[in-house]
């Protein structure tokens, strides 16, 4: 069969979401952020909530998320996205409000904001990208950096005596009464991407039902700062990150 007979509009089975802009993402090749952005756009399009969704972008690599997903965006100070999301949701209870944060943003400088927003049970969605390293600033230790992992500020590997332990913030968040859905997902292969999308959709639906805070962690890679090609980084993540940050729903009520 000739390719041109297949490539016809009626045969389209997967195309770019209309909620994504045409701007080329600044992320490095193979970066997990791009996949998560795409899933968010698809969920927003499928739920038909583009006009009702307000996103809060963090400080870190995802600071420019507003360039890629065509919705209204606020760009927060480092770690403060849950505070912006809290006010936005309380002032517009009928909108869908999500905070998109990395590990340094959410689990280090913004620990107070995320804990208290989740504990208040704000009807928001939190998307937490955990790649165990600071991407934007050049690969320094994150709160979630694994023991032994080499980063720019742990050049001989993270040591508990010197640097403390990697923080399982998602397990901590799951303990809070205000959260209704806490899950850990990944996006390194087609199966995991589809699961992550379902989790995101559920999180947005929860927010409409005013069930409390939905928290979706995505265990992710940072090829550039892990100093690995994308495929190797995915494998490293599966072998090293997943045992410490196991995938699956931690809380669902």
């Amino acid at each position: 069969m000739d390719i041109n007979e297949i490539i016809k509009p009626e045969n389209l089975v997967y195309g770019k979401s209309k909620v994504l802009t045409d701007t080329v993402m600044h992320y490095c090749p193979g970066c997990s952020h791009g996949v998560v952005h795409k899933l968010l756009a698809e969920v927003i399009e499928e739920m038909d909530i583009q006009d009702k969704t307000i996103g809060i972008s963090p400080v870190g690599c995802a600071v420019f998320a507003y360039k890629y997903i065509n919705i209204d965006w606020q760009q927060a100070a480092h770690g403060r996205a849950p505070a912006l999301a809290t006010a936005t949701k309380r002032l517009y209870p009928d909108k869908y409000v999500f905070a998109y944060q990395g590990d340094g943003d959410l689990a280090s400088i913004g620990t107070a904001e995320i804990i208290h927003a989740c504990n208040r049970g704000e009807n928001i969605v939190v998307i937490f990208i955990n790649n165990a390293i600071y991407g934007m600033t050049g690969g320094q230790m994150a709160p979630t950096t694994l023991l032994g992992m080499k980063t720019a500020t742990t050049p001989y590997g993270r040591k508990a005596e010197l640097n403390g332990y990697p923080l399982k913030i998602t397990e901590l968040i799951a303990q809070l009464e205000g959260t209704c859905y806490v899950t850990r997902q990944s996006v390194q292969n087609p199966g995991s991407v589809r699961k992550a999308k379902k989790a995101l959709r559920k999180a947005f639906e929860n927010s409409a039902q005013k069930k409390g805070t939905s928290f979706v962690e995505i265990v992710a890679t940072c090829n550039s700062n892990w100093k690995m090609p994308p495929i190797k980084a995915n494998k490293w993540m599966e072998e090293n990150m997943f045992p410490f940050y196991p995938l699956g729903d931690i809380k669902d009520r």
């Binding site: 016809k8 089975v13 997967y14 996949v35």
Partner: peptide
Amino acid sequence: PDNCTGCGNCATVCPDTVITVYRV
């Protein structure tokens, strides 16, 4: 191209959403 079944796995994992998939 003869191998392609249009499963969409490539597009699903693509971080830059540059792949469009057709299937018959």
